[in-house]
Computed example of a mutant assay.
Amino acid sequence: MAENPFPDALRATRIRLHQATAELTALGRALPWSVEPHDGWPGKEHSHTGEVTGGRPPSPGWTDEQKAAVDEFRQECLALSETVSAHPYWADFAGGALVDRRMELKSITRPGTVPEAETIPAACLPGLEIEHTYHSGMAENPFPDALRATQIRLHQATAELTALGRALPWSVEPHDGWPGKEHSHTGEVTGGRPPSPGWTDEQKAAVDEFRQECLALSETVSAHPYWADFAGGALVDRRMELKSITRPGTVPEAETIPAA
């Protein structure tokens, strides 16, 4: 690729998102098919061929550790969209042009379209300008730098994605809204919704892409080899500790990770 039309950090992050999506899909396939224990059900025998189709085998359900891990992964996934979408590169585009550029980035970074040397290890995001400056009170950091830095960014991105959602109209499709209810004694009107223009095609496309990318976020943290030394409750405790010590307000300003 003689000319890369996208900033290196943006491109590198998008490559990793494709990889992580595939890794998360594999993780999901490895779990039992039902969250709670289930007896399953028999298939249906075809009246002419005798072939049995459908049905489900018994499922042990997910362990508490698996439930806790998946729940945390899903929360972290909400942050992934902003890792790409908050990059200042997009400020020069709007409307259909913005959607086209996002789709182009997604297309040229798919597995099989980038050289092997450019693929991104699960624990790293090469090209990203992440600053690792620890304050004096953090003499001992119990987690690897790449893992800690990624989790810090996930907290930031979750807040940014929440802000994005609050800026959109309340209904996806245009809606006339409905009137509130007047209190019989005070005359105060409560409830109701104002008319909503719905989301534009560009907003729908952006949110759809964000949600797909969010599915990858869990593996950005969870696939790190650091976790291999823990299991069961100890694994959950370590994940919760990492999440706790990297929340906004618990890390110095110098350690926060730029959105790009």
Results as ranks from 00 to 15, higher is better:
66 Q>G: 06
62 W>E: 06
73 F>C: 12
84 V>H: 00
102 R>W: 15
80 L>F: 10
110 R>C: 06
70 V>R: 12
58 P>R: 04
82 E>Q: 12
61 G>H: 14
72 E>N: 08
109 T>L: 06
106 K>M: 14
75 Q>D: 13
68 A>K: 08
98 L>H: 10
59 S>E: 08
74 R>H: 07
72 E>R: 09
60 P>R: 15
115 P>K: 08
117 A>K: 15
108 I>K: 12
82 E>Y: 11
101 R>F: 05
89 Y>L: 09
101 R>D: 02
97 A>T: 01
95 G>Y: 00
116 E>H: 10
68 A>N: 08
105 L>G: 10
89 Y>K: 00
75 Q>K: 12
111 P>K: 11
89 Y>S: 10
66 Q>Y: 05
77 C>P: 03
92 D>P: 07
85 S>R: 15
108 I>E: 01
92 D>N: 07
84 V>E: 05
111 P>Q: 12
99 V>T: 14
90 W>Q: 02
116 E>V: 13
71 D>Q: 10
116 E>I: 13
71 D>C: 07
64 D>E: 14
93 F>D: 00
101 R>S: 04
76 E>C: 13
71 D>H: 08
68 A>F: 04
74 R>S: 10
97 A>M: 02
66 Q>R: 07
105 L>P: 01
67 K>M: 06
90 W>R: 03
61 G>W: 15
84 V>D: 05
62 W>Y: 11
101 R>A: 12
107 S>C: 11
67 K>Q: 03
91 A>R: 14
85 S>D: 07
92 D>E: 15
114 V>A: 11
87 H>Y: 05
61 G>K: 10
116 E>G: 08
76 E>S: 13
58 P>S: 02
87 H>S: 06
72 E>C: 05
115 P>H: 00
64 D>P: 04
